[in-house]
Design a protein around this nucleic acid. Structure first.
Lengths: 236, 236
DNA sequence: AATATACTCCCCTAAAATAGCGAGCCATTT
DNA sequence: AAATGGCTCGCTATTTTAGGGGAGTATATT
């Protein structure tokens, strides 16, 4: 049984968020890397992280809002496949400063980050990084990338189970017409255009907007579209 | 070398969308299943599918808008991990009718669907289905689920490479303030509230809305938020 | 040093969105 | 048979947003 399979087997016994942290630390030593990071930017609106970075670095990262200049995050949000830090552009002013601080804080010079996208617009990053030369790191990536992808999926699944309410929300059952309306509004059509497209009066249209807004507990139309979109209640 | 590894190796030589279709058909015979389906609902706004269903069934599916009642799609949009059709609720009126038609059309009674979420709000489904009894299907799933996950990722990656423009869009570089503004607006705050929160005048706020709307080529605010959100330019 | 981009502020008017009230028909579920 | 929920239409009023101008400072980038 491979390291990966053993790890995923163990992961099944995880019961608390703290256990996830332990599993991340176990990964760090099993694969002998500087750091392992699972960072969910939103699990049902709440962020969650399990990682091996120092407390200092985490506070600095958050305090200086590094998430805004971190090229890993920027790139990962627009990528599907795993992302090798080698292929990033570290040249911009903000990034270079960030890189310096990161290396200072014990973040490895080599890294591999995998974007994870979940239900309801969840976005998380699973990162493994190490102090290493290019050749040796390339070998490591080649050998372990597939394992990492599977592990990252399982960790995200676990985090999701533990941190998110799993019950179905009866309020998020939009009717067909409500879905139609929100879909077209999300595409930028005005109420008048949508009414014409759906062949209903603007008054009726307004009813659908109101009811869906209430079902989604949204404060206004923009909010309603935003929620419906992130929950994939409306499809592109 | 496993079947999965061989397949992923071959996938690297794929150069055209038709090749993807061939690979899907290869999967069908390699794993001896009734059908294999890769269906991307949106790749840069365009849908794409490579599958082994009959032309008739596809037309019926589209003509009768089965996507609206298909419980696989409904559930998959809210799930992260692979989804076994056994665990679905087929009891609702629309679903039962749909199920009957599907079986008629040669869709297996057993199935496994994996949701794939990509960059820019992409959503795709990779499905494998077969005519089989519960026990034998459970065994198949247990043995091959991991392979299917990796394969689905690689197919999506390929489809993405082939079908989507990969260049960066200079227009989608929002400034920090623009991101702030769209983020809070997406959360349902009114302009007045956002202006107060960011400590700027409503007039200034309006400038950010206008510039970001133009950058995103959006028709109005709702559209702009929708685009920014699907491109993950604003984070939750 | 020059050009571009981000950030801030102000005027105006017309259009659109929100919010309250009402009603009837049809299908599905209980 | 009754109840629920979806779909359709109407009115009035107030608040909010969109779209058209213009203008100055500071910070990057080239």
């Amino acid at each position: 049984m491979s390291r990966m399979e053993a790890f995923i087997g163990q992961l099944e016994h995880v019961k608390t968020p703290t256990d996830i942290q332990s599993m991340i630390e176990a990964l760090q030593s099993t694969y002998s890397v500087s750091n392992v990071v699972y960072h969910a930017l939103n699990l049902d609106d709440q962020p969650f992280a399990a990682l091996t970075y120092t407390e200092d670095w985490m506070q600095q990262y958050q305090g200086q809002k590094f998430i805004r200049v971190d090229p890993v995050v920027k790139r990962a949000t627009q990528q599907f496949h795993p992302l090798d830090w080698n292929k990033l552009d570290w040249s911009s002013r903000g990034s270079t400063a960030f890189l310096g601080e990161a290396i200072n804080a014990g973040v490895g010079n080599q890294g591999l980050s995998m974007p994870i996208r979940g239900r309801n617009g969840q976005f998380a990053l699973f990162t493994i990084n190490n102090e290493d030369n290019d050749a040796s790191w390339a070998k490591f990536v080649k050998e372990n990338q597939r394992d990492m992808l599977l592990i990252s999926h399982h960790i995200h699944q676990k985090a999701n189970e533990l941190m998110c309410r799993q019950e179905e929300d009866i309020y998020t059952k939009l009717s067909m017409r409500e879905v139609d309306v929100l879909t077209w509004l999300a595409r930028g059509l005005s109420r008048a255009s949508v009414a014409e497209k759906l062949q209903i009066s603007e008054h009726t249209l307004r009813v659908y907007i109101d009811t869906s807004r209430h079902k989604l507990r949204a404060l206004n139309l923009v909010h309603a579209v935003s929620i419906a979109q992130s929950k994939l209640l409306i499809l592109p």
